[in-house]
Design a protein around this nucleic acid. Structure first.
Length: 314
DNA sequence: CACGCGTGGTA
DNA sequence: TTACCAAGCGT
């Protein structure tokens, strides 16, 4: 859960997750649908699918692997997480390199080559940080102290060099460039994509939803039926051709959602199905279900909230 | 190796 | 408002 996600955002999800799945066997036995439902809103949904697959593998093995090499073979466990588990859970003297450790390392050694190209060099240098005997003796404390140094002292902006225990050894500070490191390659501009979604309610308050493909964007999560997301806006005529039934539809507003790599603008249409008319809808548009039980990603929750707000002001 | 993959917080 | 950032991984 903590991969690229802040502790604050994770805690509530973590607690809820552990309540449902106290052991790795419980998680391994759960339906994917339930796992994704508990993850909905946290983002990076491949992590949920990987964690689920990982639990199944560990249950199959009968125990957790305790070496970096074996941990790396598990789904969702990469160079960082394998070393975090090995050092924190099993006392193996290795250094997990996350964003914090990359920053600390780039400053300590005054590495000016920009990310992400400098990543292999940073990893090699970071691997040397636990040479001192005290670090070898307590791999778990060393790893977590390194994270905390990065999170509270050697911060991205305005680092507290005056209170830093490593200031005497810091080449970045000596050169006066610590706060400017790590350098980063310039980023690409974020394109905009456009889509139209239809929120169709039946007489019981259930809404028409379908499951997205297992892989790719929002993989395995639920959505309201709609158009593809393309680089140009849809005309009303084009959009309505993609609707799950004839209508009439109410244009209810627009939702903007920013993903890592593109901005999404969605037009939302709503309708309530006249009773007895829900048989003619093609199954490719989904089934009528309670939104409470669905695995709706943030962008779809926004769409739903818009229709609810729109209804109340109508 | 570059890119795709969410969401919330902060300056 | 925009830009950046967060206990990265898989392809």
């Amino acid at each position: 859960m903590l991969q690229q996600t802040t502790v604050k955002a994770v805690i509530a999800y973590y607690e809820r997750f552990l309540t449902h799945y106290p052991t790795v066997q419980d998680l391994a036995a759960a339906p994917q649908e339930d796992v994704l439902h508990l993850w909905a809103g946290l983002g990076y949904y491949a992590r949920a699918r990987n964690l689920h697959a990982c639990a199944k593998r560990v249950a199959e093995l009968g125990q957790f692997p305790d070496t970096v090499e074996e941990l790396l073979k598990l789904p969702g466990i990469g160079a960082y997480t394998a070393r975090a588990i090995a050092s924190i859970a099993f006392g193996v003297p290795v250094v997990p390199v996350d964003g914090n450790v990359e920053r600390v390392t780039s400053r300590l050694f005054a590495i000016e080559d920009p990310l992400p190209a400098s990543r292999p060099l940073l990893a090699r240098q970071a691997a040397l940080l636990n040479q001192p005997k005290a670090a070898q003796k307590r791999p778990s404390d060393f790893a977590q102290a390194l994270f905390d140094l990065g999170a509270t002292v050697c911060t991205p902006r305005n680092p507290s060099c005056l209170t830093c225990p490593w200031r005497p050894a810091c080449q970045g500070h000596a050169k006066g460039i610590a706060s400017t490191l790590p350098r980063k390659a310039p980023k690409q501009a974020r394109p905009t994509r456009y889509g139209v979604h239809f929120i169709l309610q039946d007489e019981t308050g259930h809404r028409l939803m379908r499951k997205r493909p297992e892989k790719g964007l929002l993989g395995g999560m639920d959505e309201f039926p709609g158009t593809e997301w393309q680089s140009t806006p849809w005309t009303e005529k084009e959009a309505l051709a993609a609707a799950p039934f004839l209508g009439p539809w109410t244009a209810c507003g627009e939702v903007t959602h920013v993903f890592t790599h593109f901005t999404l603008r969605l037009m939302i249409y709503t309708a309530t199905l006249p009773s007895g008319h829900n048989a003619g809808i093609d199954p490719s548009f989904g089934t009528f279900r309670s939104t409470e039980r669905a695995a709706l990603p943030g962008v779809m929750k926004k769409c739903l909230a818009l229709t609810v707000a729109d209804l109340e002001t109508r």
